[in-house]
Design a protein around this nucleic acid. Sequence first.
RNA 1: GGGCCGGUAGCUCAGCUGGUAGAGCAGGGGACUUUUAAUCCCAAGGUCGCAGGUUCGAAUCCUGCCCGGCCCA
Length: 493
Amino acid sequence: MPGEDELIEGRRKKLARLRARGVDPYPPRADRTHTAAAAVAAFEGWEAAGSPPDAPEVAVAGRITALRDMGKAAFLDLNDASGRIQCYLKKDLLGDEAYAGLADLDLGDFLSVRGRLFRTRTRQITVEARAYAVLAKALRPPPEKFHGIEDIETRYRQRYLDLMANEETRRVFRTRAATIARIRRFLDDRGFVEVETPVLQPEAGGAAATPFVTHHRALDQDLYLRISLELHLKRLIVGGLDKVYEMGRLFRNEGIDRTHVPEFTMIETYEAYADYHDVMRMAEELVSTVAQDVLGTTQVQFGEHVLELAPPWRRITMREALAEHSGIDFEEFRTREHLLAELQRRGIEVDPGWSWGKLLDEAVSVYVEPQLVQPTFLLDYPKEISPLAKSKPGAPGLVERFEAFAAGFELGNAYTELNDPIDQRERLEAQARLKAAGLEDVETLDEDFLAALEHGMPPTGGFGMGIDRLVMLLTGRTQIREVILFPQMRRRD
RNA sequence: GGGCCGGUAGCUCAGCUGGUAGAGCAGGGGACUUUUAAUCCCAAGGUCGCAGGUUCGAAUCCUGCCCGGCCCA
């Protein structure tokens, strides 16, 4: 009885037999006193108390992940979120009828088992069943017990099978949840206010990226899915909230690779009266605190490397880093044509229509980014590619900006925020000119945001970090889709 | 978008110098009252991603397409 249809048919027959015996295969409630882990702990506590008469009785519940039938007795493993507990079902303890009913159980079914705990010959803590109850019959077979689900496509499309079969996957997503919770606590403890800003926006600003477009029928207007949190959070600084953060989903209508997906999770923080040096210290402390509390260490294995996340992180100017890794001093290639020629001479594939900033960005991502394995701050970016950052005093053409890198990819981005509304307008107009010249991904000119700035924004340090990428670091995953539960896949018709 | 690799039983995989598809696990039947990737015996299980083509004959060779992966852009 092997094809999938027959496997399902076999389970349906068992389901029918359960019903025929008056058993509800999907009862509304479960008999459960202990999780698997709590049952083990209860037994160990009883042993530690000197094993007084009568071992603890428990009712445990979970999915049947193994079934070892020996004729007149059987072992089965129940898995719940806390772990696994073995159950021993004996014919003479359960009675003939209940024991015979085991024939209608399959791997994957949910079951509760009640009985006293004991240790088997091999010292395994086990529930000696006096009663059991079906909690939910599974109609489809679970993945293979030893190898689990290996097929990457299946792991992404049917993540529940991946979670069911692979402990590693469960660990990744628990780490993700703990990371997010710890970030919130870190910021809450420092007096940041968590806020929510619109996902649907009339203008998608705050980054140079291609947005998704949708349409609101009642308003009869196009709306964009946000590509950044920045412009709304700055409005809140104008409003006087002083320390705000938002963690949320961003959408960029761009390519997919091991560090990019069309929807991803970002945190941005804005702190009035702080500058990018303050933000830098907060960023390295945030990441190392999260690592220490979530993983118990600030050292993480990533591919071949062990990353040390404890502060201080290396600080180097972007100009120095690029010169160090490529020999290009961008101050010597200050025109678009000059830099373009140099990159082309080096055999880097570039679009001849790119702006100077875009070309520089490309040079950094080719020469510098892959080399930044240990956490590193690159400081002081050219103004042309940082239209929302404040100019650096005494450094013409540069702004107070850093990007944080680790494991060869960008982790975060931060500025001393540009709060001069006149300068800001000029910068956005420069972006608009680039767009008019045919460059697609530029910062948009958002009049409503400019109006807010004109009301006055205090000196502010802002920070953005990709949560998915941070989770990659903390879990040693080299693919962003490994840390996203349901990554976007092409539909299969 | 380009190059390379993959898609075979529910799952994990073999088979790919063309000759009519195999194993393990899961599932079915049987034995077994302390097993734990339980063990032992028996029987069963397939649109070989899809569509064409070459051929007496295609999982295998060729072409196109679909889905996925890796690398590059």
